Amino acid sequence: MKRVFKFIEKYFFIIILLAVAVALIYPNSFKWVLNTYNGINILNLLLSLVLFTMGTTLKADNFIRVFKRPKEIAIGISAQYIIMPLLALSLASLFNLDAALTAGLVLVGTVPGGTASDVITFLARGDLALSVSLTAVSTVISPILTPLITLILIGNQISFNPTEMFISIVEIVIIPIALGLLLNYKFPDFCEKLKDYLPALSSIVICLIIAGVIGANKQAIFSSSMIIILVVILQYCLAMLIGFVIGYLSGMNKKQIITIAIELAFQNSGLSTGLAKTHFSNLALATVPGALYSVWQNLAGSVIAYVLNKYHD
């Protein structure tokens, strides 16, 4: 069984592509992902599961490290919540995206870093401890910064309730992470054994979310596919490039530079998709940028990790 989970973890990007293919051919196959069950939003429930698994891998030291390495953490978090949102808004304006795609793209920019960044950092031989800490800290402060920055950037164009978004992030992100941390604190040996299975479980959940969104918006994606796909690819590639430049100009070492670049480019796109569906429900296409970003960041990230790994040799 462990070998199966390791296989899923290793070939995650291929599984994503297969899920997308199935969703495009049989769009109703994953329709249930966007439904509700007994009043519970299934998409948000799946996201909570991913964040819970993240919590079981964290320890207090991941947050204490903020005070041990303030420079790197401060630079990483500042870039995460300043550069990524502004980059998203700039691209949306440059390509004259409609309100729905703009909202979705901005959410991709304002959400915290994604957990996949830790895996890619490890594969690319970056600073894994720094990556984990940046992901943890950016996630914990996201209930405040994500709604606030989103409001500042698009609040005058698109109506939404930042307080409700704050509550959503607490429910989807903070509570599951806290429960995961508690489980890890009480049963560290058990959580250590879970580490062999949780990345693959998270991968499967992310695939389901992507397939659900892609399937539900199949026609709309085809009608505007080239533009939004181009924008998503640019958003990722520019973020990676800017991350390398920031790390270099800040005087960081090679491992730290790699980490900052990866952490900046990898977003919690699943969370952006969930927030878009919940808070921009009248804008169906708002979920599309997050789903496409998730596909691209994992595909491109695997290639980048391979190249950077070889660069070390």
Rank of each mutant, 00 (worst) to 15 (best):
Ile82Leu: 15
Gly109Phe: 10
Leu89Lys: 14
Leu107Phe: 12
Leu101Arg: 05
Pro85Gln: 11
Ala92Asp: 01
Ile82Gln: 07
Gly114Gln: 06
Gly114Asn: 04
Ile83Thr: 09
Val119Glu: 05
Leu123Gln: 11
Gly126Lys: 05
Asp127His: 10
Leu107Thr: 02
Gly109Trp: 07
Leu97Gln: 06
Ala100Tyr: 03
Thr121Met: 07
Leu86Ser: 02
Leu86Ile: 05
Leu101Ile: 06
Gly114Lys: 00
Leu123Asp: 03
Thr139Phe: 13
Thr121Gln: 09
Ser90Glu: 10
Phe95Asn: 03
Val106Asp: 05
Leu128Gly: 00
Ser131Asp: 05
Thr121Cys: 15
Leu130Ser: 07
Phe122Lys: 13
Ala100Pro: 01
Leu123Pro: 01
Leu97Gly: 02
Gly113Val: 05
Leu91Tyr: 11
Ser93Asn: 15
Arg125Lys: 15
Leu130Thr: 01
Ser90Ala: 15
Leu101Pro: 02
Val132Cys: 00
Gly109Leu: 07
Gly126Leu: 09
Thr139Glu: 13
Leu105Gln: 03
Ala124Tyr: 06
Phe122Trp: 15
Ser138Met: 07
Ala116Leu: 09
Leu128Ala: 04
Leu89Met: 14
Ser138Asn: 08
Val106Tyr: 11
Ser117His: 10
Arg125Cys: 11
Thr102Trp: 12
Arg125Asn: 15
Ala136Gly: 11
Val137Tyr: 08
Ala129Ser: 15
Ala124Gly: 10
Ser131Gly: 02
Leu91Ser: 01
Pro112Asn: 13
Val111Met: 09
Val132Phe: 03
Ile83Ala: 13
Leu128Arg: 01
Ser131Phe: 03
Ser93Lys: 15
Leu97Pro: 00
Thr135Asn: 14
Ala88Lys: 02
Pro85Leu: 11
Val119Asn: 03
Val108Trp: 13
Asp118Met: 14
Ala124Ser: 14
Thr110Gln: 02
Leu91Asn: 01
Thr110Cys: 15
Thr135His: 12
Leu107Pro: 07
Ala88Gly: 11
Thr121Ala: 14
Gly113His: 07
Ser138Ala: 12
Asp118Gly: 13
Leu91Arg: 01
Pro112His: 11
Asp127Gln: 08
Phe95Ser: 02
Leu97His: 03
Ala92Cys: 04
Ala92Thr: 02
Thr110Ile: 02
Met84Gln: 09
Thr102Ala: 10
Met84Ile: 06
Thr110Arg: 01
Asp98Cys: 06
Leu86Asp: 00
Gly114Trp: 02
Ala88Glu: 04
Leu89Gln: 11
Asp98Gly: 14
Ser117Asp: 12
Leu86Thr: 01
Thr121Pro: 04
Asp98Asn: 15
Ser90Ile: 06
Asp127Glu: 13
Gly109Met: 10
Ala92Met: 06
Ala124Thr: 02
Leu123Ala: 12
Thr115Arg: 07
Ala124Ile: 00
Ile120Leu: 15
Asp118His: 12
Leu87Ser: 00
Val119Arg: 00
Leu123Arg: 07
Ile83Trp: 08
Leu94Trp: 12
Gly114Val: 02
Val106His: 07
Leu86Asn: 02
Leu107Val: 03
Ala99Asn: 15
Leu86Glu: 03
Ala116Asp: 12
Ser133Met: 13
Leu97Trp: 06
Ile83Pro: 01
Gly126Asp: 09
Val108Lys: 06
